[in-house]
């Protein structure tokens, strides 16, 4: 049985907790955990290898007081809407998922696909890390590994403000041409948009628990952070707030 934690916090706290959990799972100090959380207030995370100026619209973020930080995981920039997106983190022993990185993306992303099915919608996994409904991205994930453990975190957009998303993030022109659309707005969607009704956060959390239970073949018990997790996260949070970390490339 896995631990389930439901949480909310600012962008620095959320990334610090994810890293703390990865490191402590790697040392076998904490159990396999599904963490479901919201970014409060709305914020942006960028991939480990991205240059800030290529990934986000800095001027827009600053003028709208939208905080951002760099993740320890690769992949692209993400807008986390407090009122329209739930983020998941799967922190687990590698041997409990798969030693093959691509297989582990597929296994964990199937939890998102099952969750979307709870709403009566069909979704597809598009390797490496996207889940789409009717060809439009509704979820993106990124995975980081240590020797024994993995962290995969990702989004599920249920009612994201796609205008703010498109103004916050920069997508390379070439990326858009590959996707054969002209803007972020046209290649992303939300569960509410696809259903034609406004879906609530609680509905999404409940669907994600069911979806991951199926994908990971486990039940969950509602748990809390350990003292070690809180202490480590409180140390790591300074890194995520620092200019040196965020603007390192």
């Amino acid at each position: 049985m896995w631990r389930l934690i439901i949480d909310e916090g600012d962008v620095y706290w959320n990334m610090a907790v994810d890293e703390a959990m990865l490191l402590l799972r790697d040392s076998n100090i904490i159990p396999n955990t599904l963490r479901l959380y919201v970014f409060k207030p709305s914020a942006v995370t960028i991939g480990y290898f991205q240059r800030v100026e290529d990934a986000v619209n800095l001027e827009f973020l600053r003028s709208n007081n939208i905080g951002f930080t760099r993740r320890i995981s690769g992949g692209g920039s993400v807008y986390h809407d407090v009122n329209g997106e739930v983020t998941y983190s799967v922190v687990a022993s590698i041997k409990d998922i798969s030693t093959n990185i691509m297989d582990s993306y597929r296994i964990i992303c199937s939890g998102i696909i099952y969750a979307i099915k709870e709403f009566g919608l069909n979704a597809d996994f598009i390797p490496i890390n996207d889940v789409v409904i009717n060809g439009r991205k509704v979820s993106g994930s990124a995975q980081s590994r240590r020797k024994n453990a993995l962290l995969q975190h990702g989004t599920l957009m249920y009612n994201t403000d796609l205008i703010t998303l498109s103004k916050s993030l920069r997508a390379p022109k070439e990326k858009l041409s590959v996707h054969r659309v002209t803007s972020i707005l046209e290649r992303v969607t939300t569960i509410s948009r696809e259903l034609g009704r406004t879906v609530s956060k609680d509905e999404v959390i409940s669907a994600l628990i069911k979806g991951f239970s199926k994908a990971l073949n486990t039940d969950f018990y509602r748990g809390h952070y350990t003292r070690e997790e809180l202490e480590l996260a409180n140390k790591l949070i300074e890194k995520y707030r620092s200019v040196e970390w965020v603007f390192q490339r």
């Binding site: 240059r51 290529d54 690769g74 590994r145």
Partner: peptide, 25 residues
């Protein structure tokens, strides 16, 4: 994306960036 600085035909600085994945990061 690769940004490089070249001095007299020698690479003096390289920054590799993008939305790919690399293990270990």
């Amino acid at each position: 994306k690769v940004d490089i600085e070249v001095v007299n035909d020698t690479i003096v600085k390289v920054v590799i960036s993008g939305d790919f994945f690399l293990y270990p990061e």
